[in-house]
Lab assay of single mutants.
Amino acid sequence: NQASVVANQLIPINTALTLVMMRAEVVTPMGIPAVDIPRLVSMQVNRAVPLGTTLMPDMVKGYA
């Protein structure tokens, strides 16, 4: 099973992602693959992402 990107903290809307905000976890359903974490750094979320939420492609501006 491939790990997905999960929020390590509450990420407010329009926040630029940093490594500290994300962790890799095997979850269902799968979200953004953990291998993409370096690519996500400095991209912004388009909604508030609660702690423990799996990041989906439509939550990150410019990802999809």
Rank of each mutant, 00 (worst) to 15 (best):
Q2E: 15
V6E: 02
V35E: 15
M30C: 15
N46V: 15
A48N: 09
S4I: 01
P38T: 11
M59D: 14
G31F: 02
L19Q: 06
L10D: 14
V5R: 00
V35N: 12
Y63N: 07
P57D: 08
G31T: 01
T28S: 14
T28F: 04
V20Q: 10
V45S: 04
L51S: 13
L55H: 01
L10K: 07
I32R: 00
I13R: 05
T53L: 13
G62N: 14
N46D: 12
V20H: 10
I32G: 00
I32L: 08
G52P: 00
V20P: 06
T15I: 08
A7Q: 00
I13W: 07
M56P: 01
P12D: 12
D58E: 14
S4C: 05
M21A: 05
I11A: 01
K61I: 12
L40K: 00
I32P: 01
K61G: 07
I11L: 13
N1V: 15
A16P: 14
S4K: 02
G31Q: 02
V26C: 15
M30Q: 12
A3R: 03
V27R: 06
A24T: 10
A7P: 01
V5A: 07
R23A: 11
V35R: 03
Q9M: 10
D36Q: 08
R23V: 14
V49H: 02
M56R: 04
A24P: 14
Y63H: 07
N8R: 06
T18F: 14
P38L: 05
D58G: 11
L17H: 00
A16R: 05
A34I: 08
A16Y: 04
A64H: 13
I13C: 15
L40N: 00
E25R: 03
G62R: 05
Q9R: 06
N46C: 04
M22E: 01
P33A: 14
I13S: 12
I32M: 03
A16Q: 15
M22S: 00
N14E: 11
I11T: 01
N14M: 07
A48I: 12
L55N: 00
G52Q: 05
V27Q: 15
L40W: 02
T15Y: 04
L51I: 14
L19A: 12
E25P: 00
R39M: 12
P50V: 10
V60M: 06
L10G: 08
T15Q: 10
P38F: 06
L10A: 06
A34S: 12
